[in-house]
Design a protein around this nucleic acid. Structure first.
Lengths: 119, 119
DNA sequence: AAGTTATTTCAAAAAAAATTGAAATACCTG
DNA sequence: CAGGTATTTCAATTTTTTTTGAAATAACTT
C-alpha cells in the first residue's frame, strides 16, 4: 500500500493554478483576514430585514425613535437593540434634541442605502 | 390630568413629514417586506469572513473542495456547511467532475465578488 | 422637586447559526 | 466487487444573536 499525496487537486485545476503562477500568486487576490472581517461585520449589520427597513426609512426621513417605532411596530427595547447595531457599524448616528433622539444616516449609511433601498 | 396623544413626534420632524405628503408617501420609498427579506438573506450569506474568503478565491480560480479546504484550513464538514450556505443563496454552484466537485461563482456571485474582493 | 415622556440598559430566556466528529454517499480504480 | 478518495449529511453541542419585560437615564414641564 503506497501512500498517496493527500489533498490532491484534479489535473485541469492544477494546470490552471500553474498557469497563474501558483497558489501563492492566486492568493494575492484574496483580501486579508482583517479586511474580510471588516466586510463581514458590515454585512452582518445589514443581514436583518428590520434593520434594512430602518435604513430605508432614514434614507427619506430623519426620524426620532418614536417615529421609527411607529413604522416598524415593535417594542422600544427591541428597536433600541437594532439601532445600536446600526450605530456601532457606522451606518447611522443619533443626535439628542431635547427629549428626543433624532437618527439619521451617516455618509456610509447613505452610500449603502443607495444600493439597498432601490428606487 | 389630560391624556396626551401617544407616539408624538417633534415639531420639526412632523413638519418635514407634512412637506413630503405624509408618512404614507414616505413609506412608498421603503421596499416591501419581501424585498427586504430577500436582501437580508443575501447579506447574511455574506456576513462571515470565511465565506467571503471562499468567494474571493473562486473569483480568481474555480476550485474543488479539497483546494478550498487547503486554503481555508478547516474541517471538511465545516467547509461543506459554509459551501451549502453560499450555494443556497445563489452565489456559487458546484459541478461534479469524477470524484471531485468543482465550485465556481454564479453570475450573481461574480457581481458580488467584484464589489467585495476589491482589487 | 415631582411627574411625565422618550429612550436605553440589563439580565434572563428563546431562537438561530456554527462547530464537531462520526457515519453516509458517490464515484473511481484495480 | 473491494478498497480508496472526495465530499456531504446528521445529530449533538456550543456559540452567537435576538427577544422580552423590567428597571434605569435623561430631559422636559409644572
Amino acid at each position: 500500500m503506497v501512500k498517496k499525496m493527500p489533498e490532491n487537486v484534479p489535473d485541469d485545476i492544477a494546470e490552471e493554478i500553474e498557469n497563474k503562477g501558483g497558489l501563492k500568486e492566486i492568493l494575492k487576490n484574496v483580501p486579508s483576514q482583517r479586511e474580510l472581517g471588516r466586510s463581514a461585520k458590515m454585512f452582518k449589520a445589514l443581514s436583518d430585514p428590520l434593520r434594512l427597513k430602518i435604513i430605508c426609512l432614514l434614507r427619506v426621513q430623519d426620524s426620532c425613535v418614536c417615529l421609527i417605532r411607529s413604522v416598524v411596530n415593535i417594542a422600544y427595547s427591541k428597536l433600541s437593540y437594532h439601532l445600536s447595531i446600526l450605530k456601532n457599524s457606522g451606518l447611522i448616528e443619533g443626535e439628542r434634541k431635547g427629549n428626543y433622539i433624532i437618527y439619521r444616516l451617516t455618509d456610509l449609511g447613505k452610500k449603502v442605502a443607495g444600493e439597498v433601498c432601490k428606487k
